[in-house]
Computed example of a mutant assay.
Amino acid sequence: MNTAAAIATPASVRRAPDSFAIALMVLLCAIWGLQQVAIKSTNGALGPMFQAGLRSTIAAVLVYGWARLRGTPLFLRDGTFGAGLLAGVLFAGEFICIFAGLTLTSASRMAVFLYTAPCFTALGLHAFVAGERMRRMQWYGVAVAFAGIALAFADGFARAPAPGASALAGVLGDALGVLGGVMWAATTVVVRATSLSQASASKTLFYQLVVSAVILLVLAFALGEPQRAHLTPLAMVSLGYQAIAVAFVSYLTWFWLLTRYMASRLSVFSFLTPLFGVGFGVALLGESFSSRFVLASTLVLAGIVLVNAPARRADAK
């Protein structure tokens, strides 16, 4: 993967996803879908903010090492500091919502609610980034996929709360999932609409990891989470997966894709992640799965097909 060459690609030639990008996005969605299970399985051993902060710290060190190995400068003055700081704050906000939300709701439901992000991303890019305007058929696809997400929401709200939990807590967890999706979308828009669009994928990710690590660890110590932490073998494996596979490898790959392909098209593939998230939640955590969600998933997949349908002359607006 040639990051330097990717960054040299001008925004005007970013293109629709090809077969390579599609396969890579499916793999990324599977990695992200498993993330919710990994976080929830570790919340009992490490506090949510402490877990998130350690994850960002480990990944930041890995990104720094990768950049040094590749000869990618991370500290040159290139006018990206303000945008990088904003992206980092939004990134931290996203994971505050995810990690805190997973103490209140299931991994399956979090996966569904978090991945409203592509809808917010498409709206933000449509408003702020030239060349990312959606065609009519693509908007139809987003609408169909959003209907699937809405149906999944309805299914989630209809479920009985977990033993010992209140219905209000579950609703709050779901709301944090949606807010996390908004934060994720806002981060993507900042990356594409500011000077970060011309920065390397390593530097873009480094900003987010360093800023989020500081914010999350300060919050964790303020809440006294490190004093209550206890590392178990499962927690160590989960933390390693989150830091290396998710926060380092998958995010670096995601930002590289953003330099080559249209972000609005890539983001819609994220609708696949709830399917993986629910599947992993059912298989690994024994969470419930309803027939209503099968219908919701079908709508989501139909939306993805519509969004990525070849452009027709009559639909080129």
Rank of each mutant, 00 (worst) to 15 (best):
A175G: 05
V190P: 02
A52G: 11
F113A: 04
L252P: 11
A167Y: 11
I96T: 09
G286Q: 08
L179N: 10
A30F: 05
Q227R: 15
V191D: 11
H126S: 12
V191W: 06
L234W: 14
S197K: 15
V142T: 09
G170D: 02
E287R: 03
T273I: 00
L125T: 01
L266N: 08
V144M: 00
W184F: 15
G173P: 01
Y64V: 08
S197A: 15
G281N: 02
A23S: 14
A143K: 05
M183G: 03
E132S: 05
L219P: 00
F289A: 09
L306Q: 00
I149C: 09
A186E: 10
T232V: 07
A283L: 13
S297H: 04
R136V: 11
V211E: 01
H126C: 03
P48H: 05
G65P: 00
G47I: 09
I98W: 09
F153I: 10
A185T: 09
L62K: 02
F50S: 02
I149E: 04
V129C: 02
W254P: 00
F248G: 11
G101A: 06
S200W: 00
S108K: 01
G65D: 00
A283V: 07
F255L: 10
F153Q: 05
A229L: 10
A92S: 13
A4P: 02
G224L: 03
C119G: 09
K317T: 15
K203I: 03
G141S: 07
R159I: 03
R136K: 08
S195P: 03
D78G: 04
R265Y: 11
A213N: 03
A143W: 03
Y207Q: 01
L239K: 05
P233Y: 04
A243W: 07
A175C: 10
S297T: 09
F95K: 05
